[in-house]
Amino acid sequence: MVADMHAGTLPERMGIEFLEATPERVSGRMPVEGNTQPYGLLHGGASVVLAETLGSVAAAIHAGPGRIAVGIEISATHHRSASSGHVTGVATRLHAGRTLATYDIEISDEQGRRVCTSRLTCILRDR
């Protein structure tokens, strides 16, 4: 169901695959290949797209039917580079209220080393 929501969108073009999806936690992975900057390293913006995608999906699930989640703030710290394979992100709920939801997103490489830490806040509103 989550994958169907993203048909023809940026997450699909970037190769993001969802692994788990609940209101408390959403995980997914993305290939490094095709999402790099000119030096062959994972583009920082690609990490941010993965983070916002995972956090927004979790917030949308929390919001429930007939409501949407829209990102209003995101931050990211890039800890190390990745040059091959996949990176995996896990969005974990920090706060889920009636109008705002905030998630921490950790992105790691295939060796389990943290590549990026991000925080996303979404506003929840009626469709």
Rank of each mutant, 00 (worst) to 15 (best):
H62R: 03
L41P: 06
C116A: 15
D109R: 02
A82G: 02
V87W: 01
T92G: 01
G112M: 03
L41K: 10
H62F: 00
S84R: 00
G71I: 14
A82Q: 01
E52L: 13
S47E: 03
T36Y: 03
G97K: 09
G45P: 00
P38H: 00
G97F: 10
M1P: 00
L120E: 14
G71E: 11
V90A: 04
A46G: 08
L41V: 05
H43R: 00
L42C: 02
A7I: 09
G55N: 10
R13A: 15
R127Y: 02
G55E: 12
I68F: 01
L54H: 11
S75N: 10
R13Y: 10
E20P: 09
C122N: 14
V57Y: 04
V90T: 14
S83K: 05
Y39H: 13
E12M: 07
Q37I: 01
V87I: 15
A21W: 11
T99P: 01
G85M: 01
T117F: 05
E12Q: 14
I107K: 08
A58Q: 11
D126K: 04
T36L: 08
A60D: 10
V48C: 14
I107C: 04
P31T: 13
H78W: 11
T117R: 15
G8R: 05
G28C: 09
G8M: 12
G64W: 00
C122P: 00
H86V: 12
F18T: 15
L94Y: 12
A21R: 06
T77N: 15
H43Q: 07
P11V: 11
V26M: 01
G89I: 02
T22L: 04
P65S: 08
H95I: 02
M14W: 07
T121C: 05
V49W: 01
H62E: 12
M30I: 05
N35L: 10
D126V: 15
V26L: 06
V26P: 05
R93F: 11
H6G: 02
Y103T: 02
V49S: 08
T121R: 01
V32R: 04
L10V: 14
V32S: 08
S83P: 10
E52C: 11
L120R: 00
